[in-house]
Structure formats: structure tokens, C-alpha cells
Amino acid sequence: MPHQVRQESHTPGTRTTARTRRAAVLGSPIAHSLSPALHRAAYGELGLDSWTYDSFEVDESGIAGFLADLDGTWAGLSLTMPLKRAVIPLLDEISETAASVEAVNTVVFGDDGRRLGENTDIPGMIAALRERGVERVESAAVLGAGATASSALAALARVCAGEVTAYVRSEARAREMRGWGERLGVPVRTADWSDAAEALRAPLVIATTPAGTTDALATAVPDGPGTLFDVLYDPWPTSLAASWQERGGAVVSGLDLLIHQAALQVEQMTGHGPAPLATMRAAGEAALRARGA
């Protein structure tokens, strides 16, 4: 099914709550997802008693069949890996933001059945930074490459006035990040991961790497650092985040990102808002505590 790139719209559509409406998060693996806790908490606060939100284990080979089986009660889907790019050919339209990084994390079903692809990760990053007082920086560093790093560059296109340095482990990754920079209009310089300690002096550092990858950098955090945005949330804090806070720096967590991107999904899927951030945060923190108990 061909898709079109549509102009951005930030006004949620009007939806009825008189009948059961369904939404869910899809991915593989999916058992770890906090999305059900966040979305259900939002529905409760907004009085959307007829709305349900579930999770389904779906991989790339199963996404087409899952979409084909949905009926008119479905309002939207949240997507995690490995579906963010695999879903694109199955959609009717995707937003400019989603097209810019070739990644869809949200599908909204129109009343006419059309499948609209959105990306709330990028505006979610921007909102999480603004919540911590970061509106504009002169330069930034990104630790890592890949899908999350490309979303970070897209967010930095609106936040960073100058150059972004990406610290990566291979020349192939370096080329990839420079290519994303060119596509997104962000001046990107690449550096080898062995020099990643230099990144910690940037006014904004975005860590996009898997758990444990940045632990060795914890002892290199300078006094009075800028802002660290670590996209991890479990376990939390990471060694780098803990060291950053001890030295007086501001920290934005992966839970902050998850809450803000989920809030945007709630508004887009339901047509109701603003989403209750405090309630969603409390639900996410409670779910993480229960997981660690």
C-alpha cells in the first residue's frame, strides 16, 4: 500500500468515547514495555472508561497480518523495535517528522480506516529537554549511533544552534551519522568511541547506547557538567547518570522521554488532552518499582 507524506498537524482529531475503543503497543520483545501502564493511567485520568490498551508480541513477519485483522474499534498503535521501519510500507500516510528519520512509532486509525504514521519520539525528546529547562544549546554530543541516535539528531536540529559530535565505534557508523546529519540539516562531526570522554564537556550530551555501554565514562564526568539525556530507564540511574548528578549536572532520563512521547500518542489517538503527565509519570515509576521488587 503506497503512503504519502502529509503536513504536520498538532490538533488531535475528535473521537467518540461512547463505545469501546482499543489501542496497544506492538514489538518484540514486548514484555518489558511500560506503555500499558502509562496509557491506562492517562485514560483513567481523562475519564476514558471505555478505552483499553494492551501489548502484543509482534515481529516484522507478523505486522502485516496483525494490521489486516483489526476492526473498527481500534484507534491506534504504539510501535517499538523492530517495527518502526517495517510498518511504513503498510501505511497510507506518514508525517513529515516520521519521514525525516524513516521511523514510525505511532499509528493512528482515521474514522475512514486510513492508517496514519506518526513519530512522537522526536517531539517527545524536545519536550523532555524543555521540561528540564533546555531550550537551546550552542553544541551537543551524541553517544552511539542507530535508530535512537538518528532521532536524537532530528531533535537536535531544533535545539542545537551549532555542531553535533557523534561518538561511534566504526567508520560505517560514522558515515551513517554524517548522512543523517546532512539529511536533517545538522552539522555532524564524528569521533571514535575511544575519545568519548571528550563528549562529557559538551553543554548537552545525549547517550543512546545500550545498558552498561557508558559505565566506564562515569569517572570522567567533569565538575559542573551541562545536561545529560540518557535514554535508558531500567535500571536507573545508570552509572553515568549517577555520576553526572553527583557533580551537579542536570539529567533527563529515558522515563522522561517515554512519558512525553506517550503523552503525545494519547492525545493523537484519543483526541483528548492535554495528557496528564504527572499521573503518567507516577504510573511509570510505580511500574518500575514493582518490576524491581
Score class of each variant (00 low, 15 high):
Arg22Trp: 10
Glu118Thr: 00
Thr14Phe: 08
Ser78Ala: 13
Gly146Phe: 13
Leu34Asn: 03
Leu143Thr: 03
Thr190Glu: 08
Gly248Phe: 08
Ser9Trp: 12
Ala141Arg: 03
Val186Ala: 09
Ser243Gln: 05
Thr190Gln: 08
Thr148Asn: 12
Gly181Gln: 05
Ile94Ser: 09
Pro12Met: 01
Val159Asn: 09
Leu129Gln: 05
Ala128Cys: 12
Asp234Met: 01
Ile259Pro: 02
Ala282Leu: 04
Leu34Met: 14
Ala18Leu: 14
Glu93Asn: 10
Leu34Pro: 03
Thr148Pro: 02
Val108Ile: 13
Asp59Phe: 00
Ile88His: 06
Lys84Gly: 07
Met1Tyr: 06
Ile63Gly: 07
Leu277His: 14
Ala75Trp: 03
Leu200Ala: 03
His39Ala: 08
Leu70Ala: 03
Pro12Trp: 06
Thr80Ile: 09
Thr190Ala: 06
His272Val: 09
Ser33Gly: 13
Ser55Leu: 05
Thr208Arg: 01
Asp54Ser: 15
Ser9Asp: 14
His10Pro: 00
Ala23Ser: 15
Val168Asp: 05
Gly133Glu: 08
Ile259Arg: 02
Arg115Phe: 13
Leu48Phe: 04
Leu91Ile: 07
Arg175Trp: 12
Ser150Leu: 02
Gly113Ser: 11
Pro123Gln: 08
Trp193Gln: 04
Ile88Arg: 07
Leu217Phe: 03
Glu102Arg: 13
Leu240Gln: 01
Glu138Asn: 11
Pro274Ala: 13
Leu184Asn: 07
Asp59Ala: 03
Phe229His: 03
Leu48Ile: 11
Thr238Trp: 02
Tyr233Asn: 08
Pro187Glu: 05
Glu198Thr: 14
Ser194Arg: 14
Gln268Arg: 15
Ala68Tyr: 08
Asp59Gln: 07
Thr209Leu: 15
Pro36Trp: 13
Pro187Ile: 05
Arg169Gln: 14
Leu38Ser: 01
Glu163Ile: 01
Gly62Arg: 12
Ala147Pro: 02
Glu135Ser: 09
Ile259Gly: 02
Val137Leu: 10
Val221Asp: 01
Ala207Asp: 15
Leu26Thr: 10
Phe66Lys: 03
Asp192Ile: 00
Ser33Leu: 07
Val104Lys: 06
Arg247Asn: 09
Gly284Trp: 01
Val164Asp: 01
Leu77Phe: 00
Trp236Lys: 04
Val188Cys: 11
Thr165Ile: 09
Ser33Met: 08
Glu182Val: 00
